[in-house]
Design a protein around this nucleic acid. Structure first.
Lengths: 133, 133
DNA sequence: AGTAATTATTTAGCTAGGTAAATAAATTTC
DNA sequence: GAAATTTATTTACCTAGCTAAATAATTACT
């Protein structure tokens, strides 16, 4: 890329994802799986559509991730009143393990972003949002 | 993620990649293919190892991408003096088409990043680099 | 009420990243 | 100089995004 912003941004994004996956290995989770678990923890049971709209991802990515999380015992898929929709809920196992995982994540984020002051963190987000899109 | 920086960063990264792919459709290229072509244009012929080290990705990603670029006629793989290594060069077709693609990219980048002042762009990169890693 | 349009989810198949392990050539070591 | 180590590339297989199209259930239309 000619403008160094893009290369820097893409690279940091990949780097952070890899680090996050590394750190989450101890809980046998991938970063995107964690993202979904956290989303459910924060919002309670959600339909697939609610999840992908919330996370700003396309539906098939969520279908696949939920299928995996289900077979691994982290979530359940229940039929909704509207028979088209599936409602996803955290399993007891997930609820039980979530605090430890959350602690891992908080430590990770603190390590990664701790070199920035709170001021700089706000500045960073502001700049991200000021970019088109 | 609990710290909004990560979500914002990952999301913008995904968004920009998608936009870039969209814009590159007119040249029948994907963003990561473009990245490699530009890398070769800037540095001249390179071995696979030089490419993946330069782009900061793992070797298999580059092997795959180069194979595809080769079958599409954008690059050639030549044996090096060291018989282990393959030297990748741009094809005549690529050299010919690169100016038009570059123009597309410059316009894209200007559109995406134009809402930031030059000052802010520097600030942004500085903050990215200040984050750990 | 019956047909058409919309909505939720899934399936199939693509790019693009990653790790682990295989292979082949070059280099180092003894 | 033979054996061991290193290096460059590839292969196989995983996650994770995407689009396009299929399916099934609901809603809207007339």
């Amino acid at each position: 890329m000619m403008n160094p912003i893009f290369h820097a941004l893409f690279q940091k994004s990949r780097y952070l994802t890899n680090c996050l996956n590394e750190v989450l290995k101890q809980h046998q989770l991938y970063s995107s799986q964690w993202t979904i678990l956290y989303c459910l923890h924060k919002n309670g049971p959600m339909t697939l559509t609610q999840i992908w709209k919330y996370l700003n991802v396309e539906a098939p990515s969520i279908t696949r991730a939920i299928t995996r999380l289900e077979t691994l015992g982290w979530v359940q898929r229940l039929d909704g009143e509207d028979k088209r929709e599936k409602i996803v809920t955290l399993s007891a196992q997930a609820e039980e393990r979530l605090p430890a995982i959350t602690a891992t994540i908080i430590a990770f984020e603190e390590e990664m972003v701790g070199s920035l002051t709170v001021e700089e963190q706000h500045q960073f987000i502001k700049l991200l949002e000021k970019m088109k899109g």
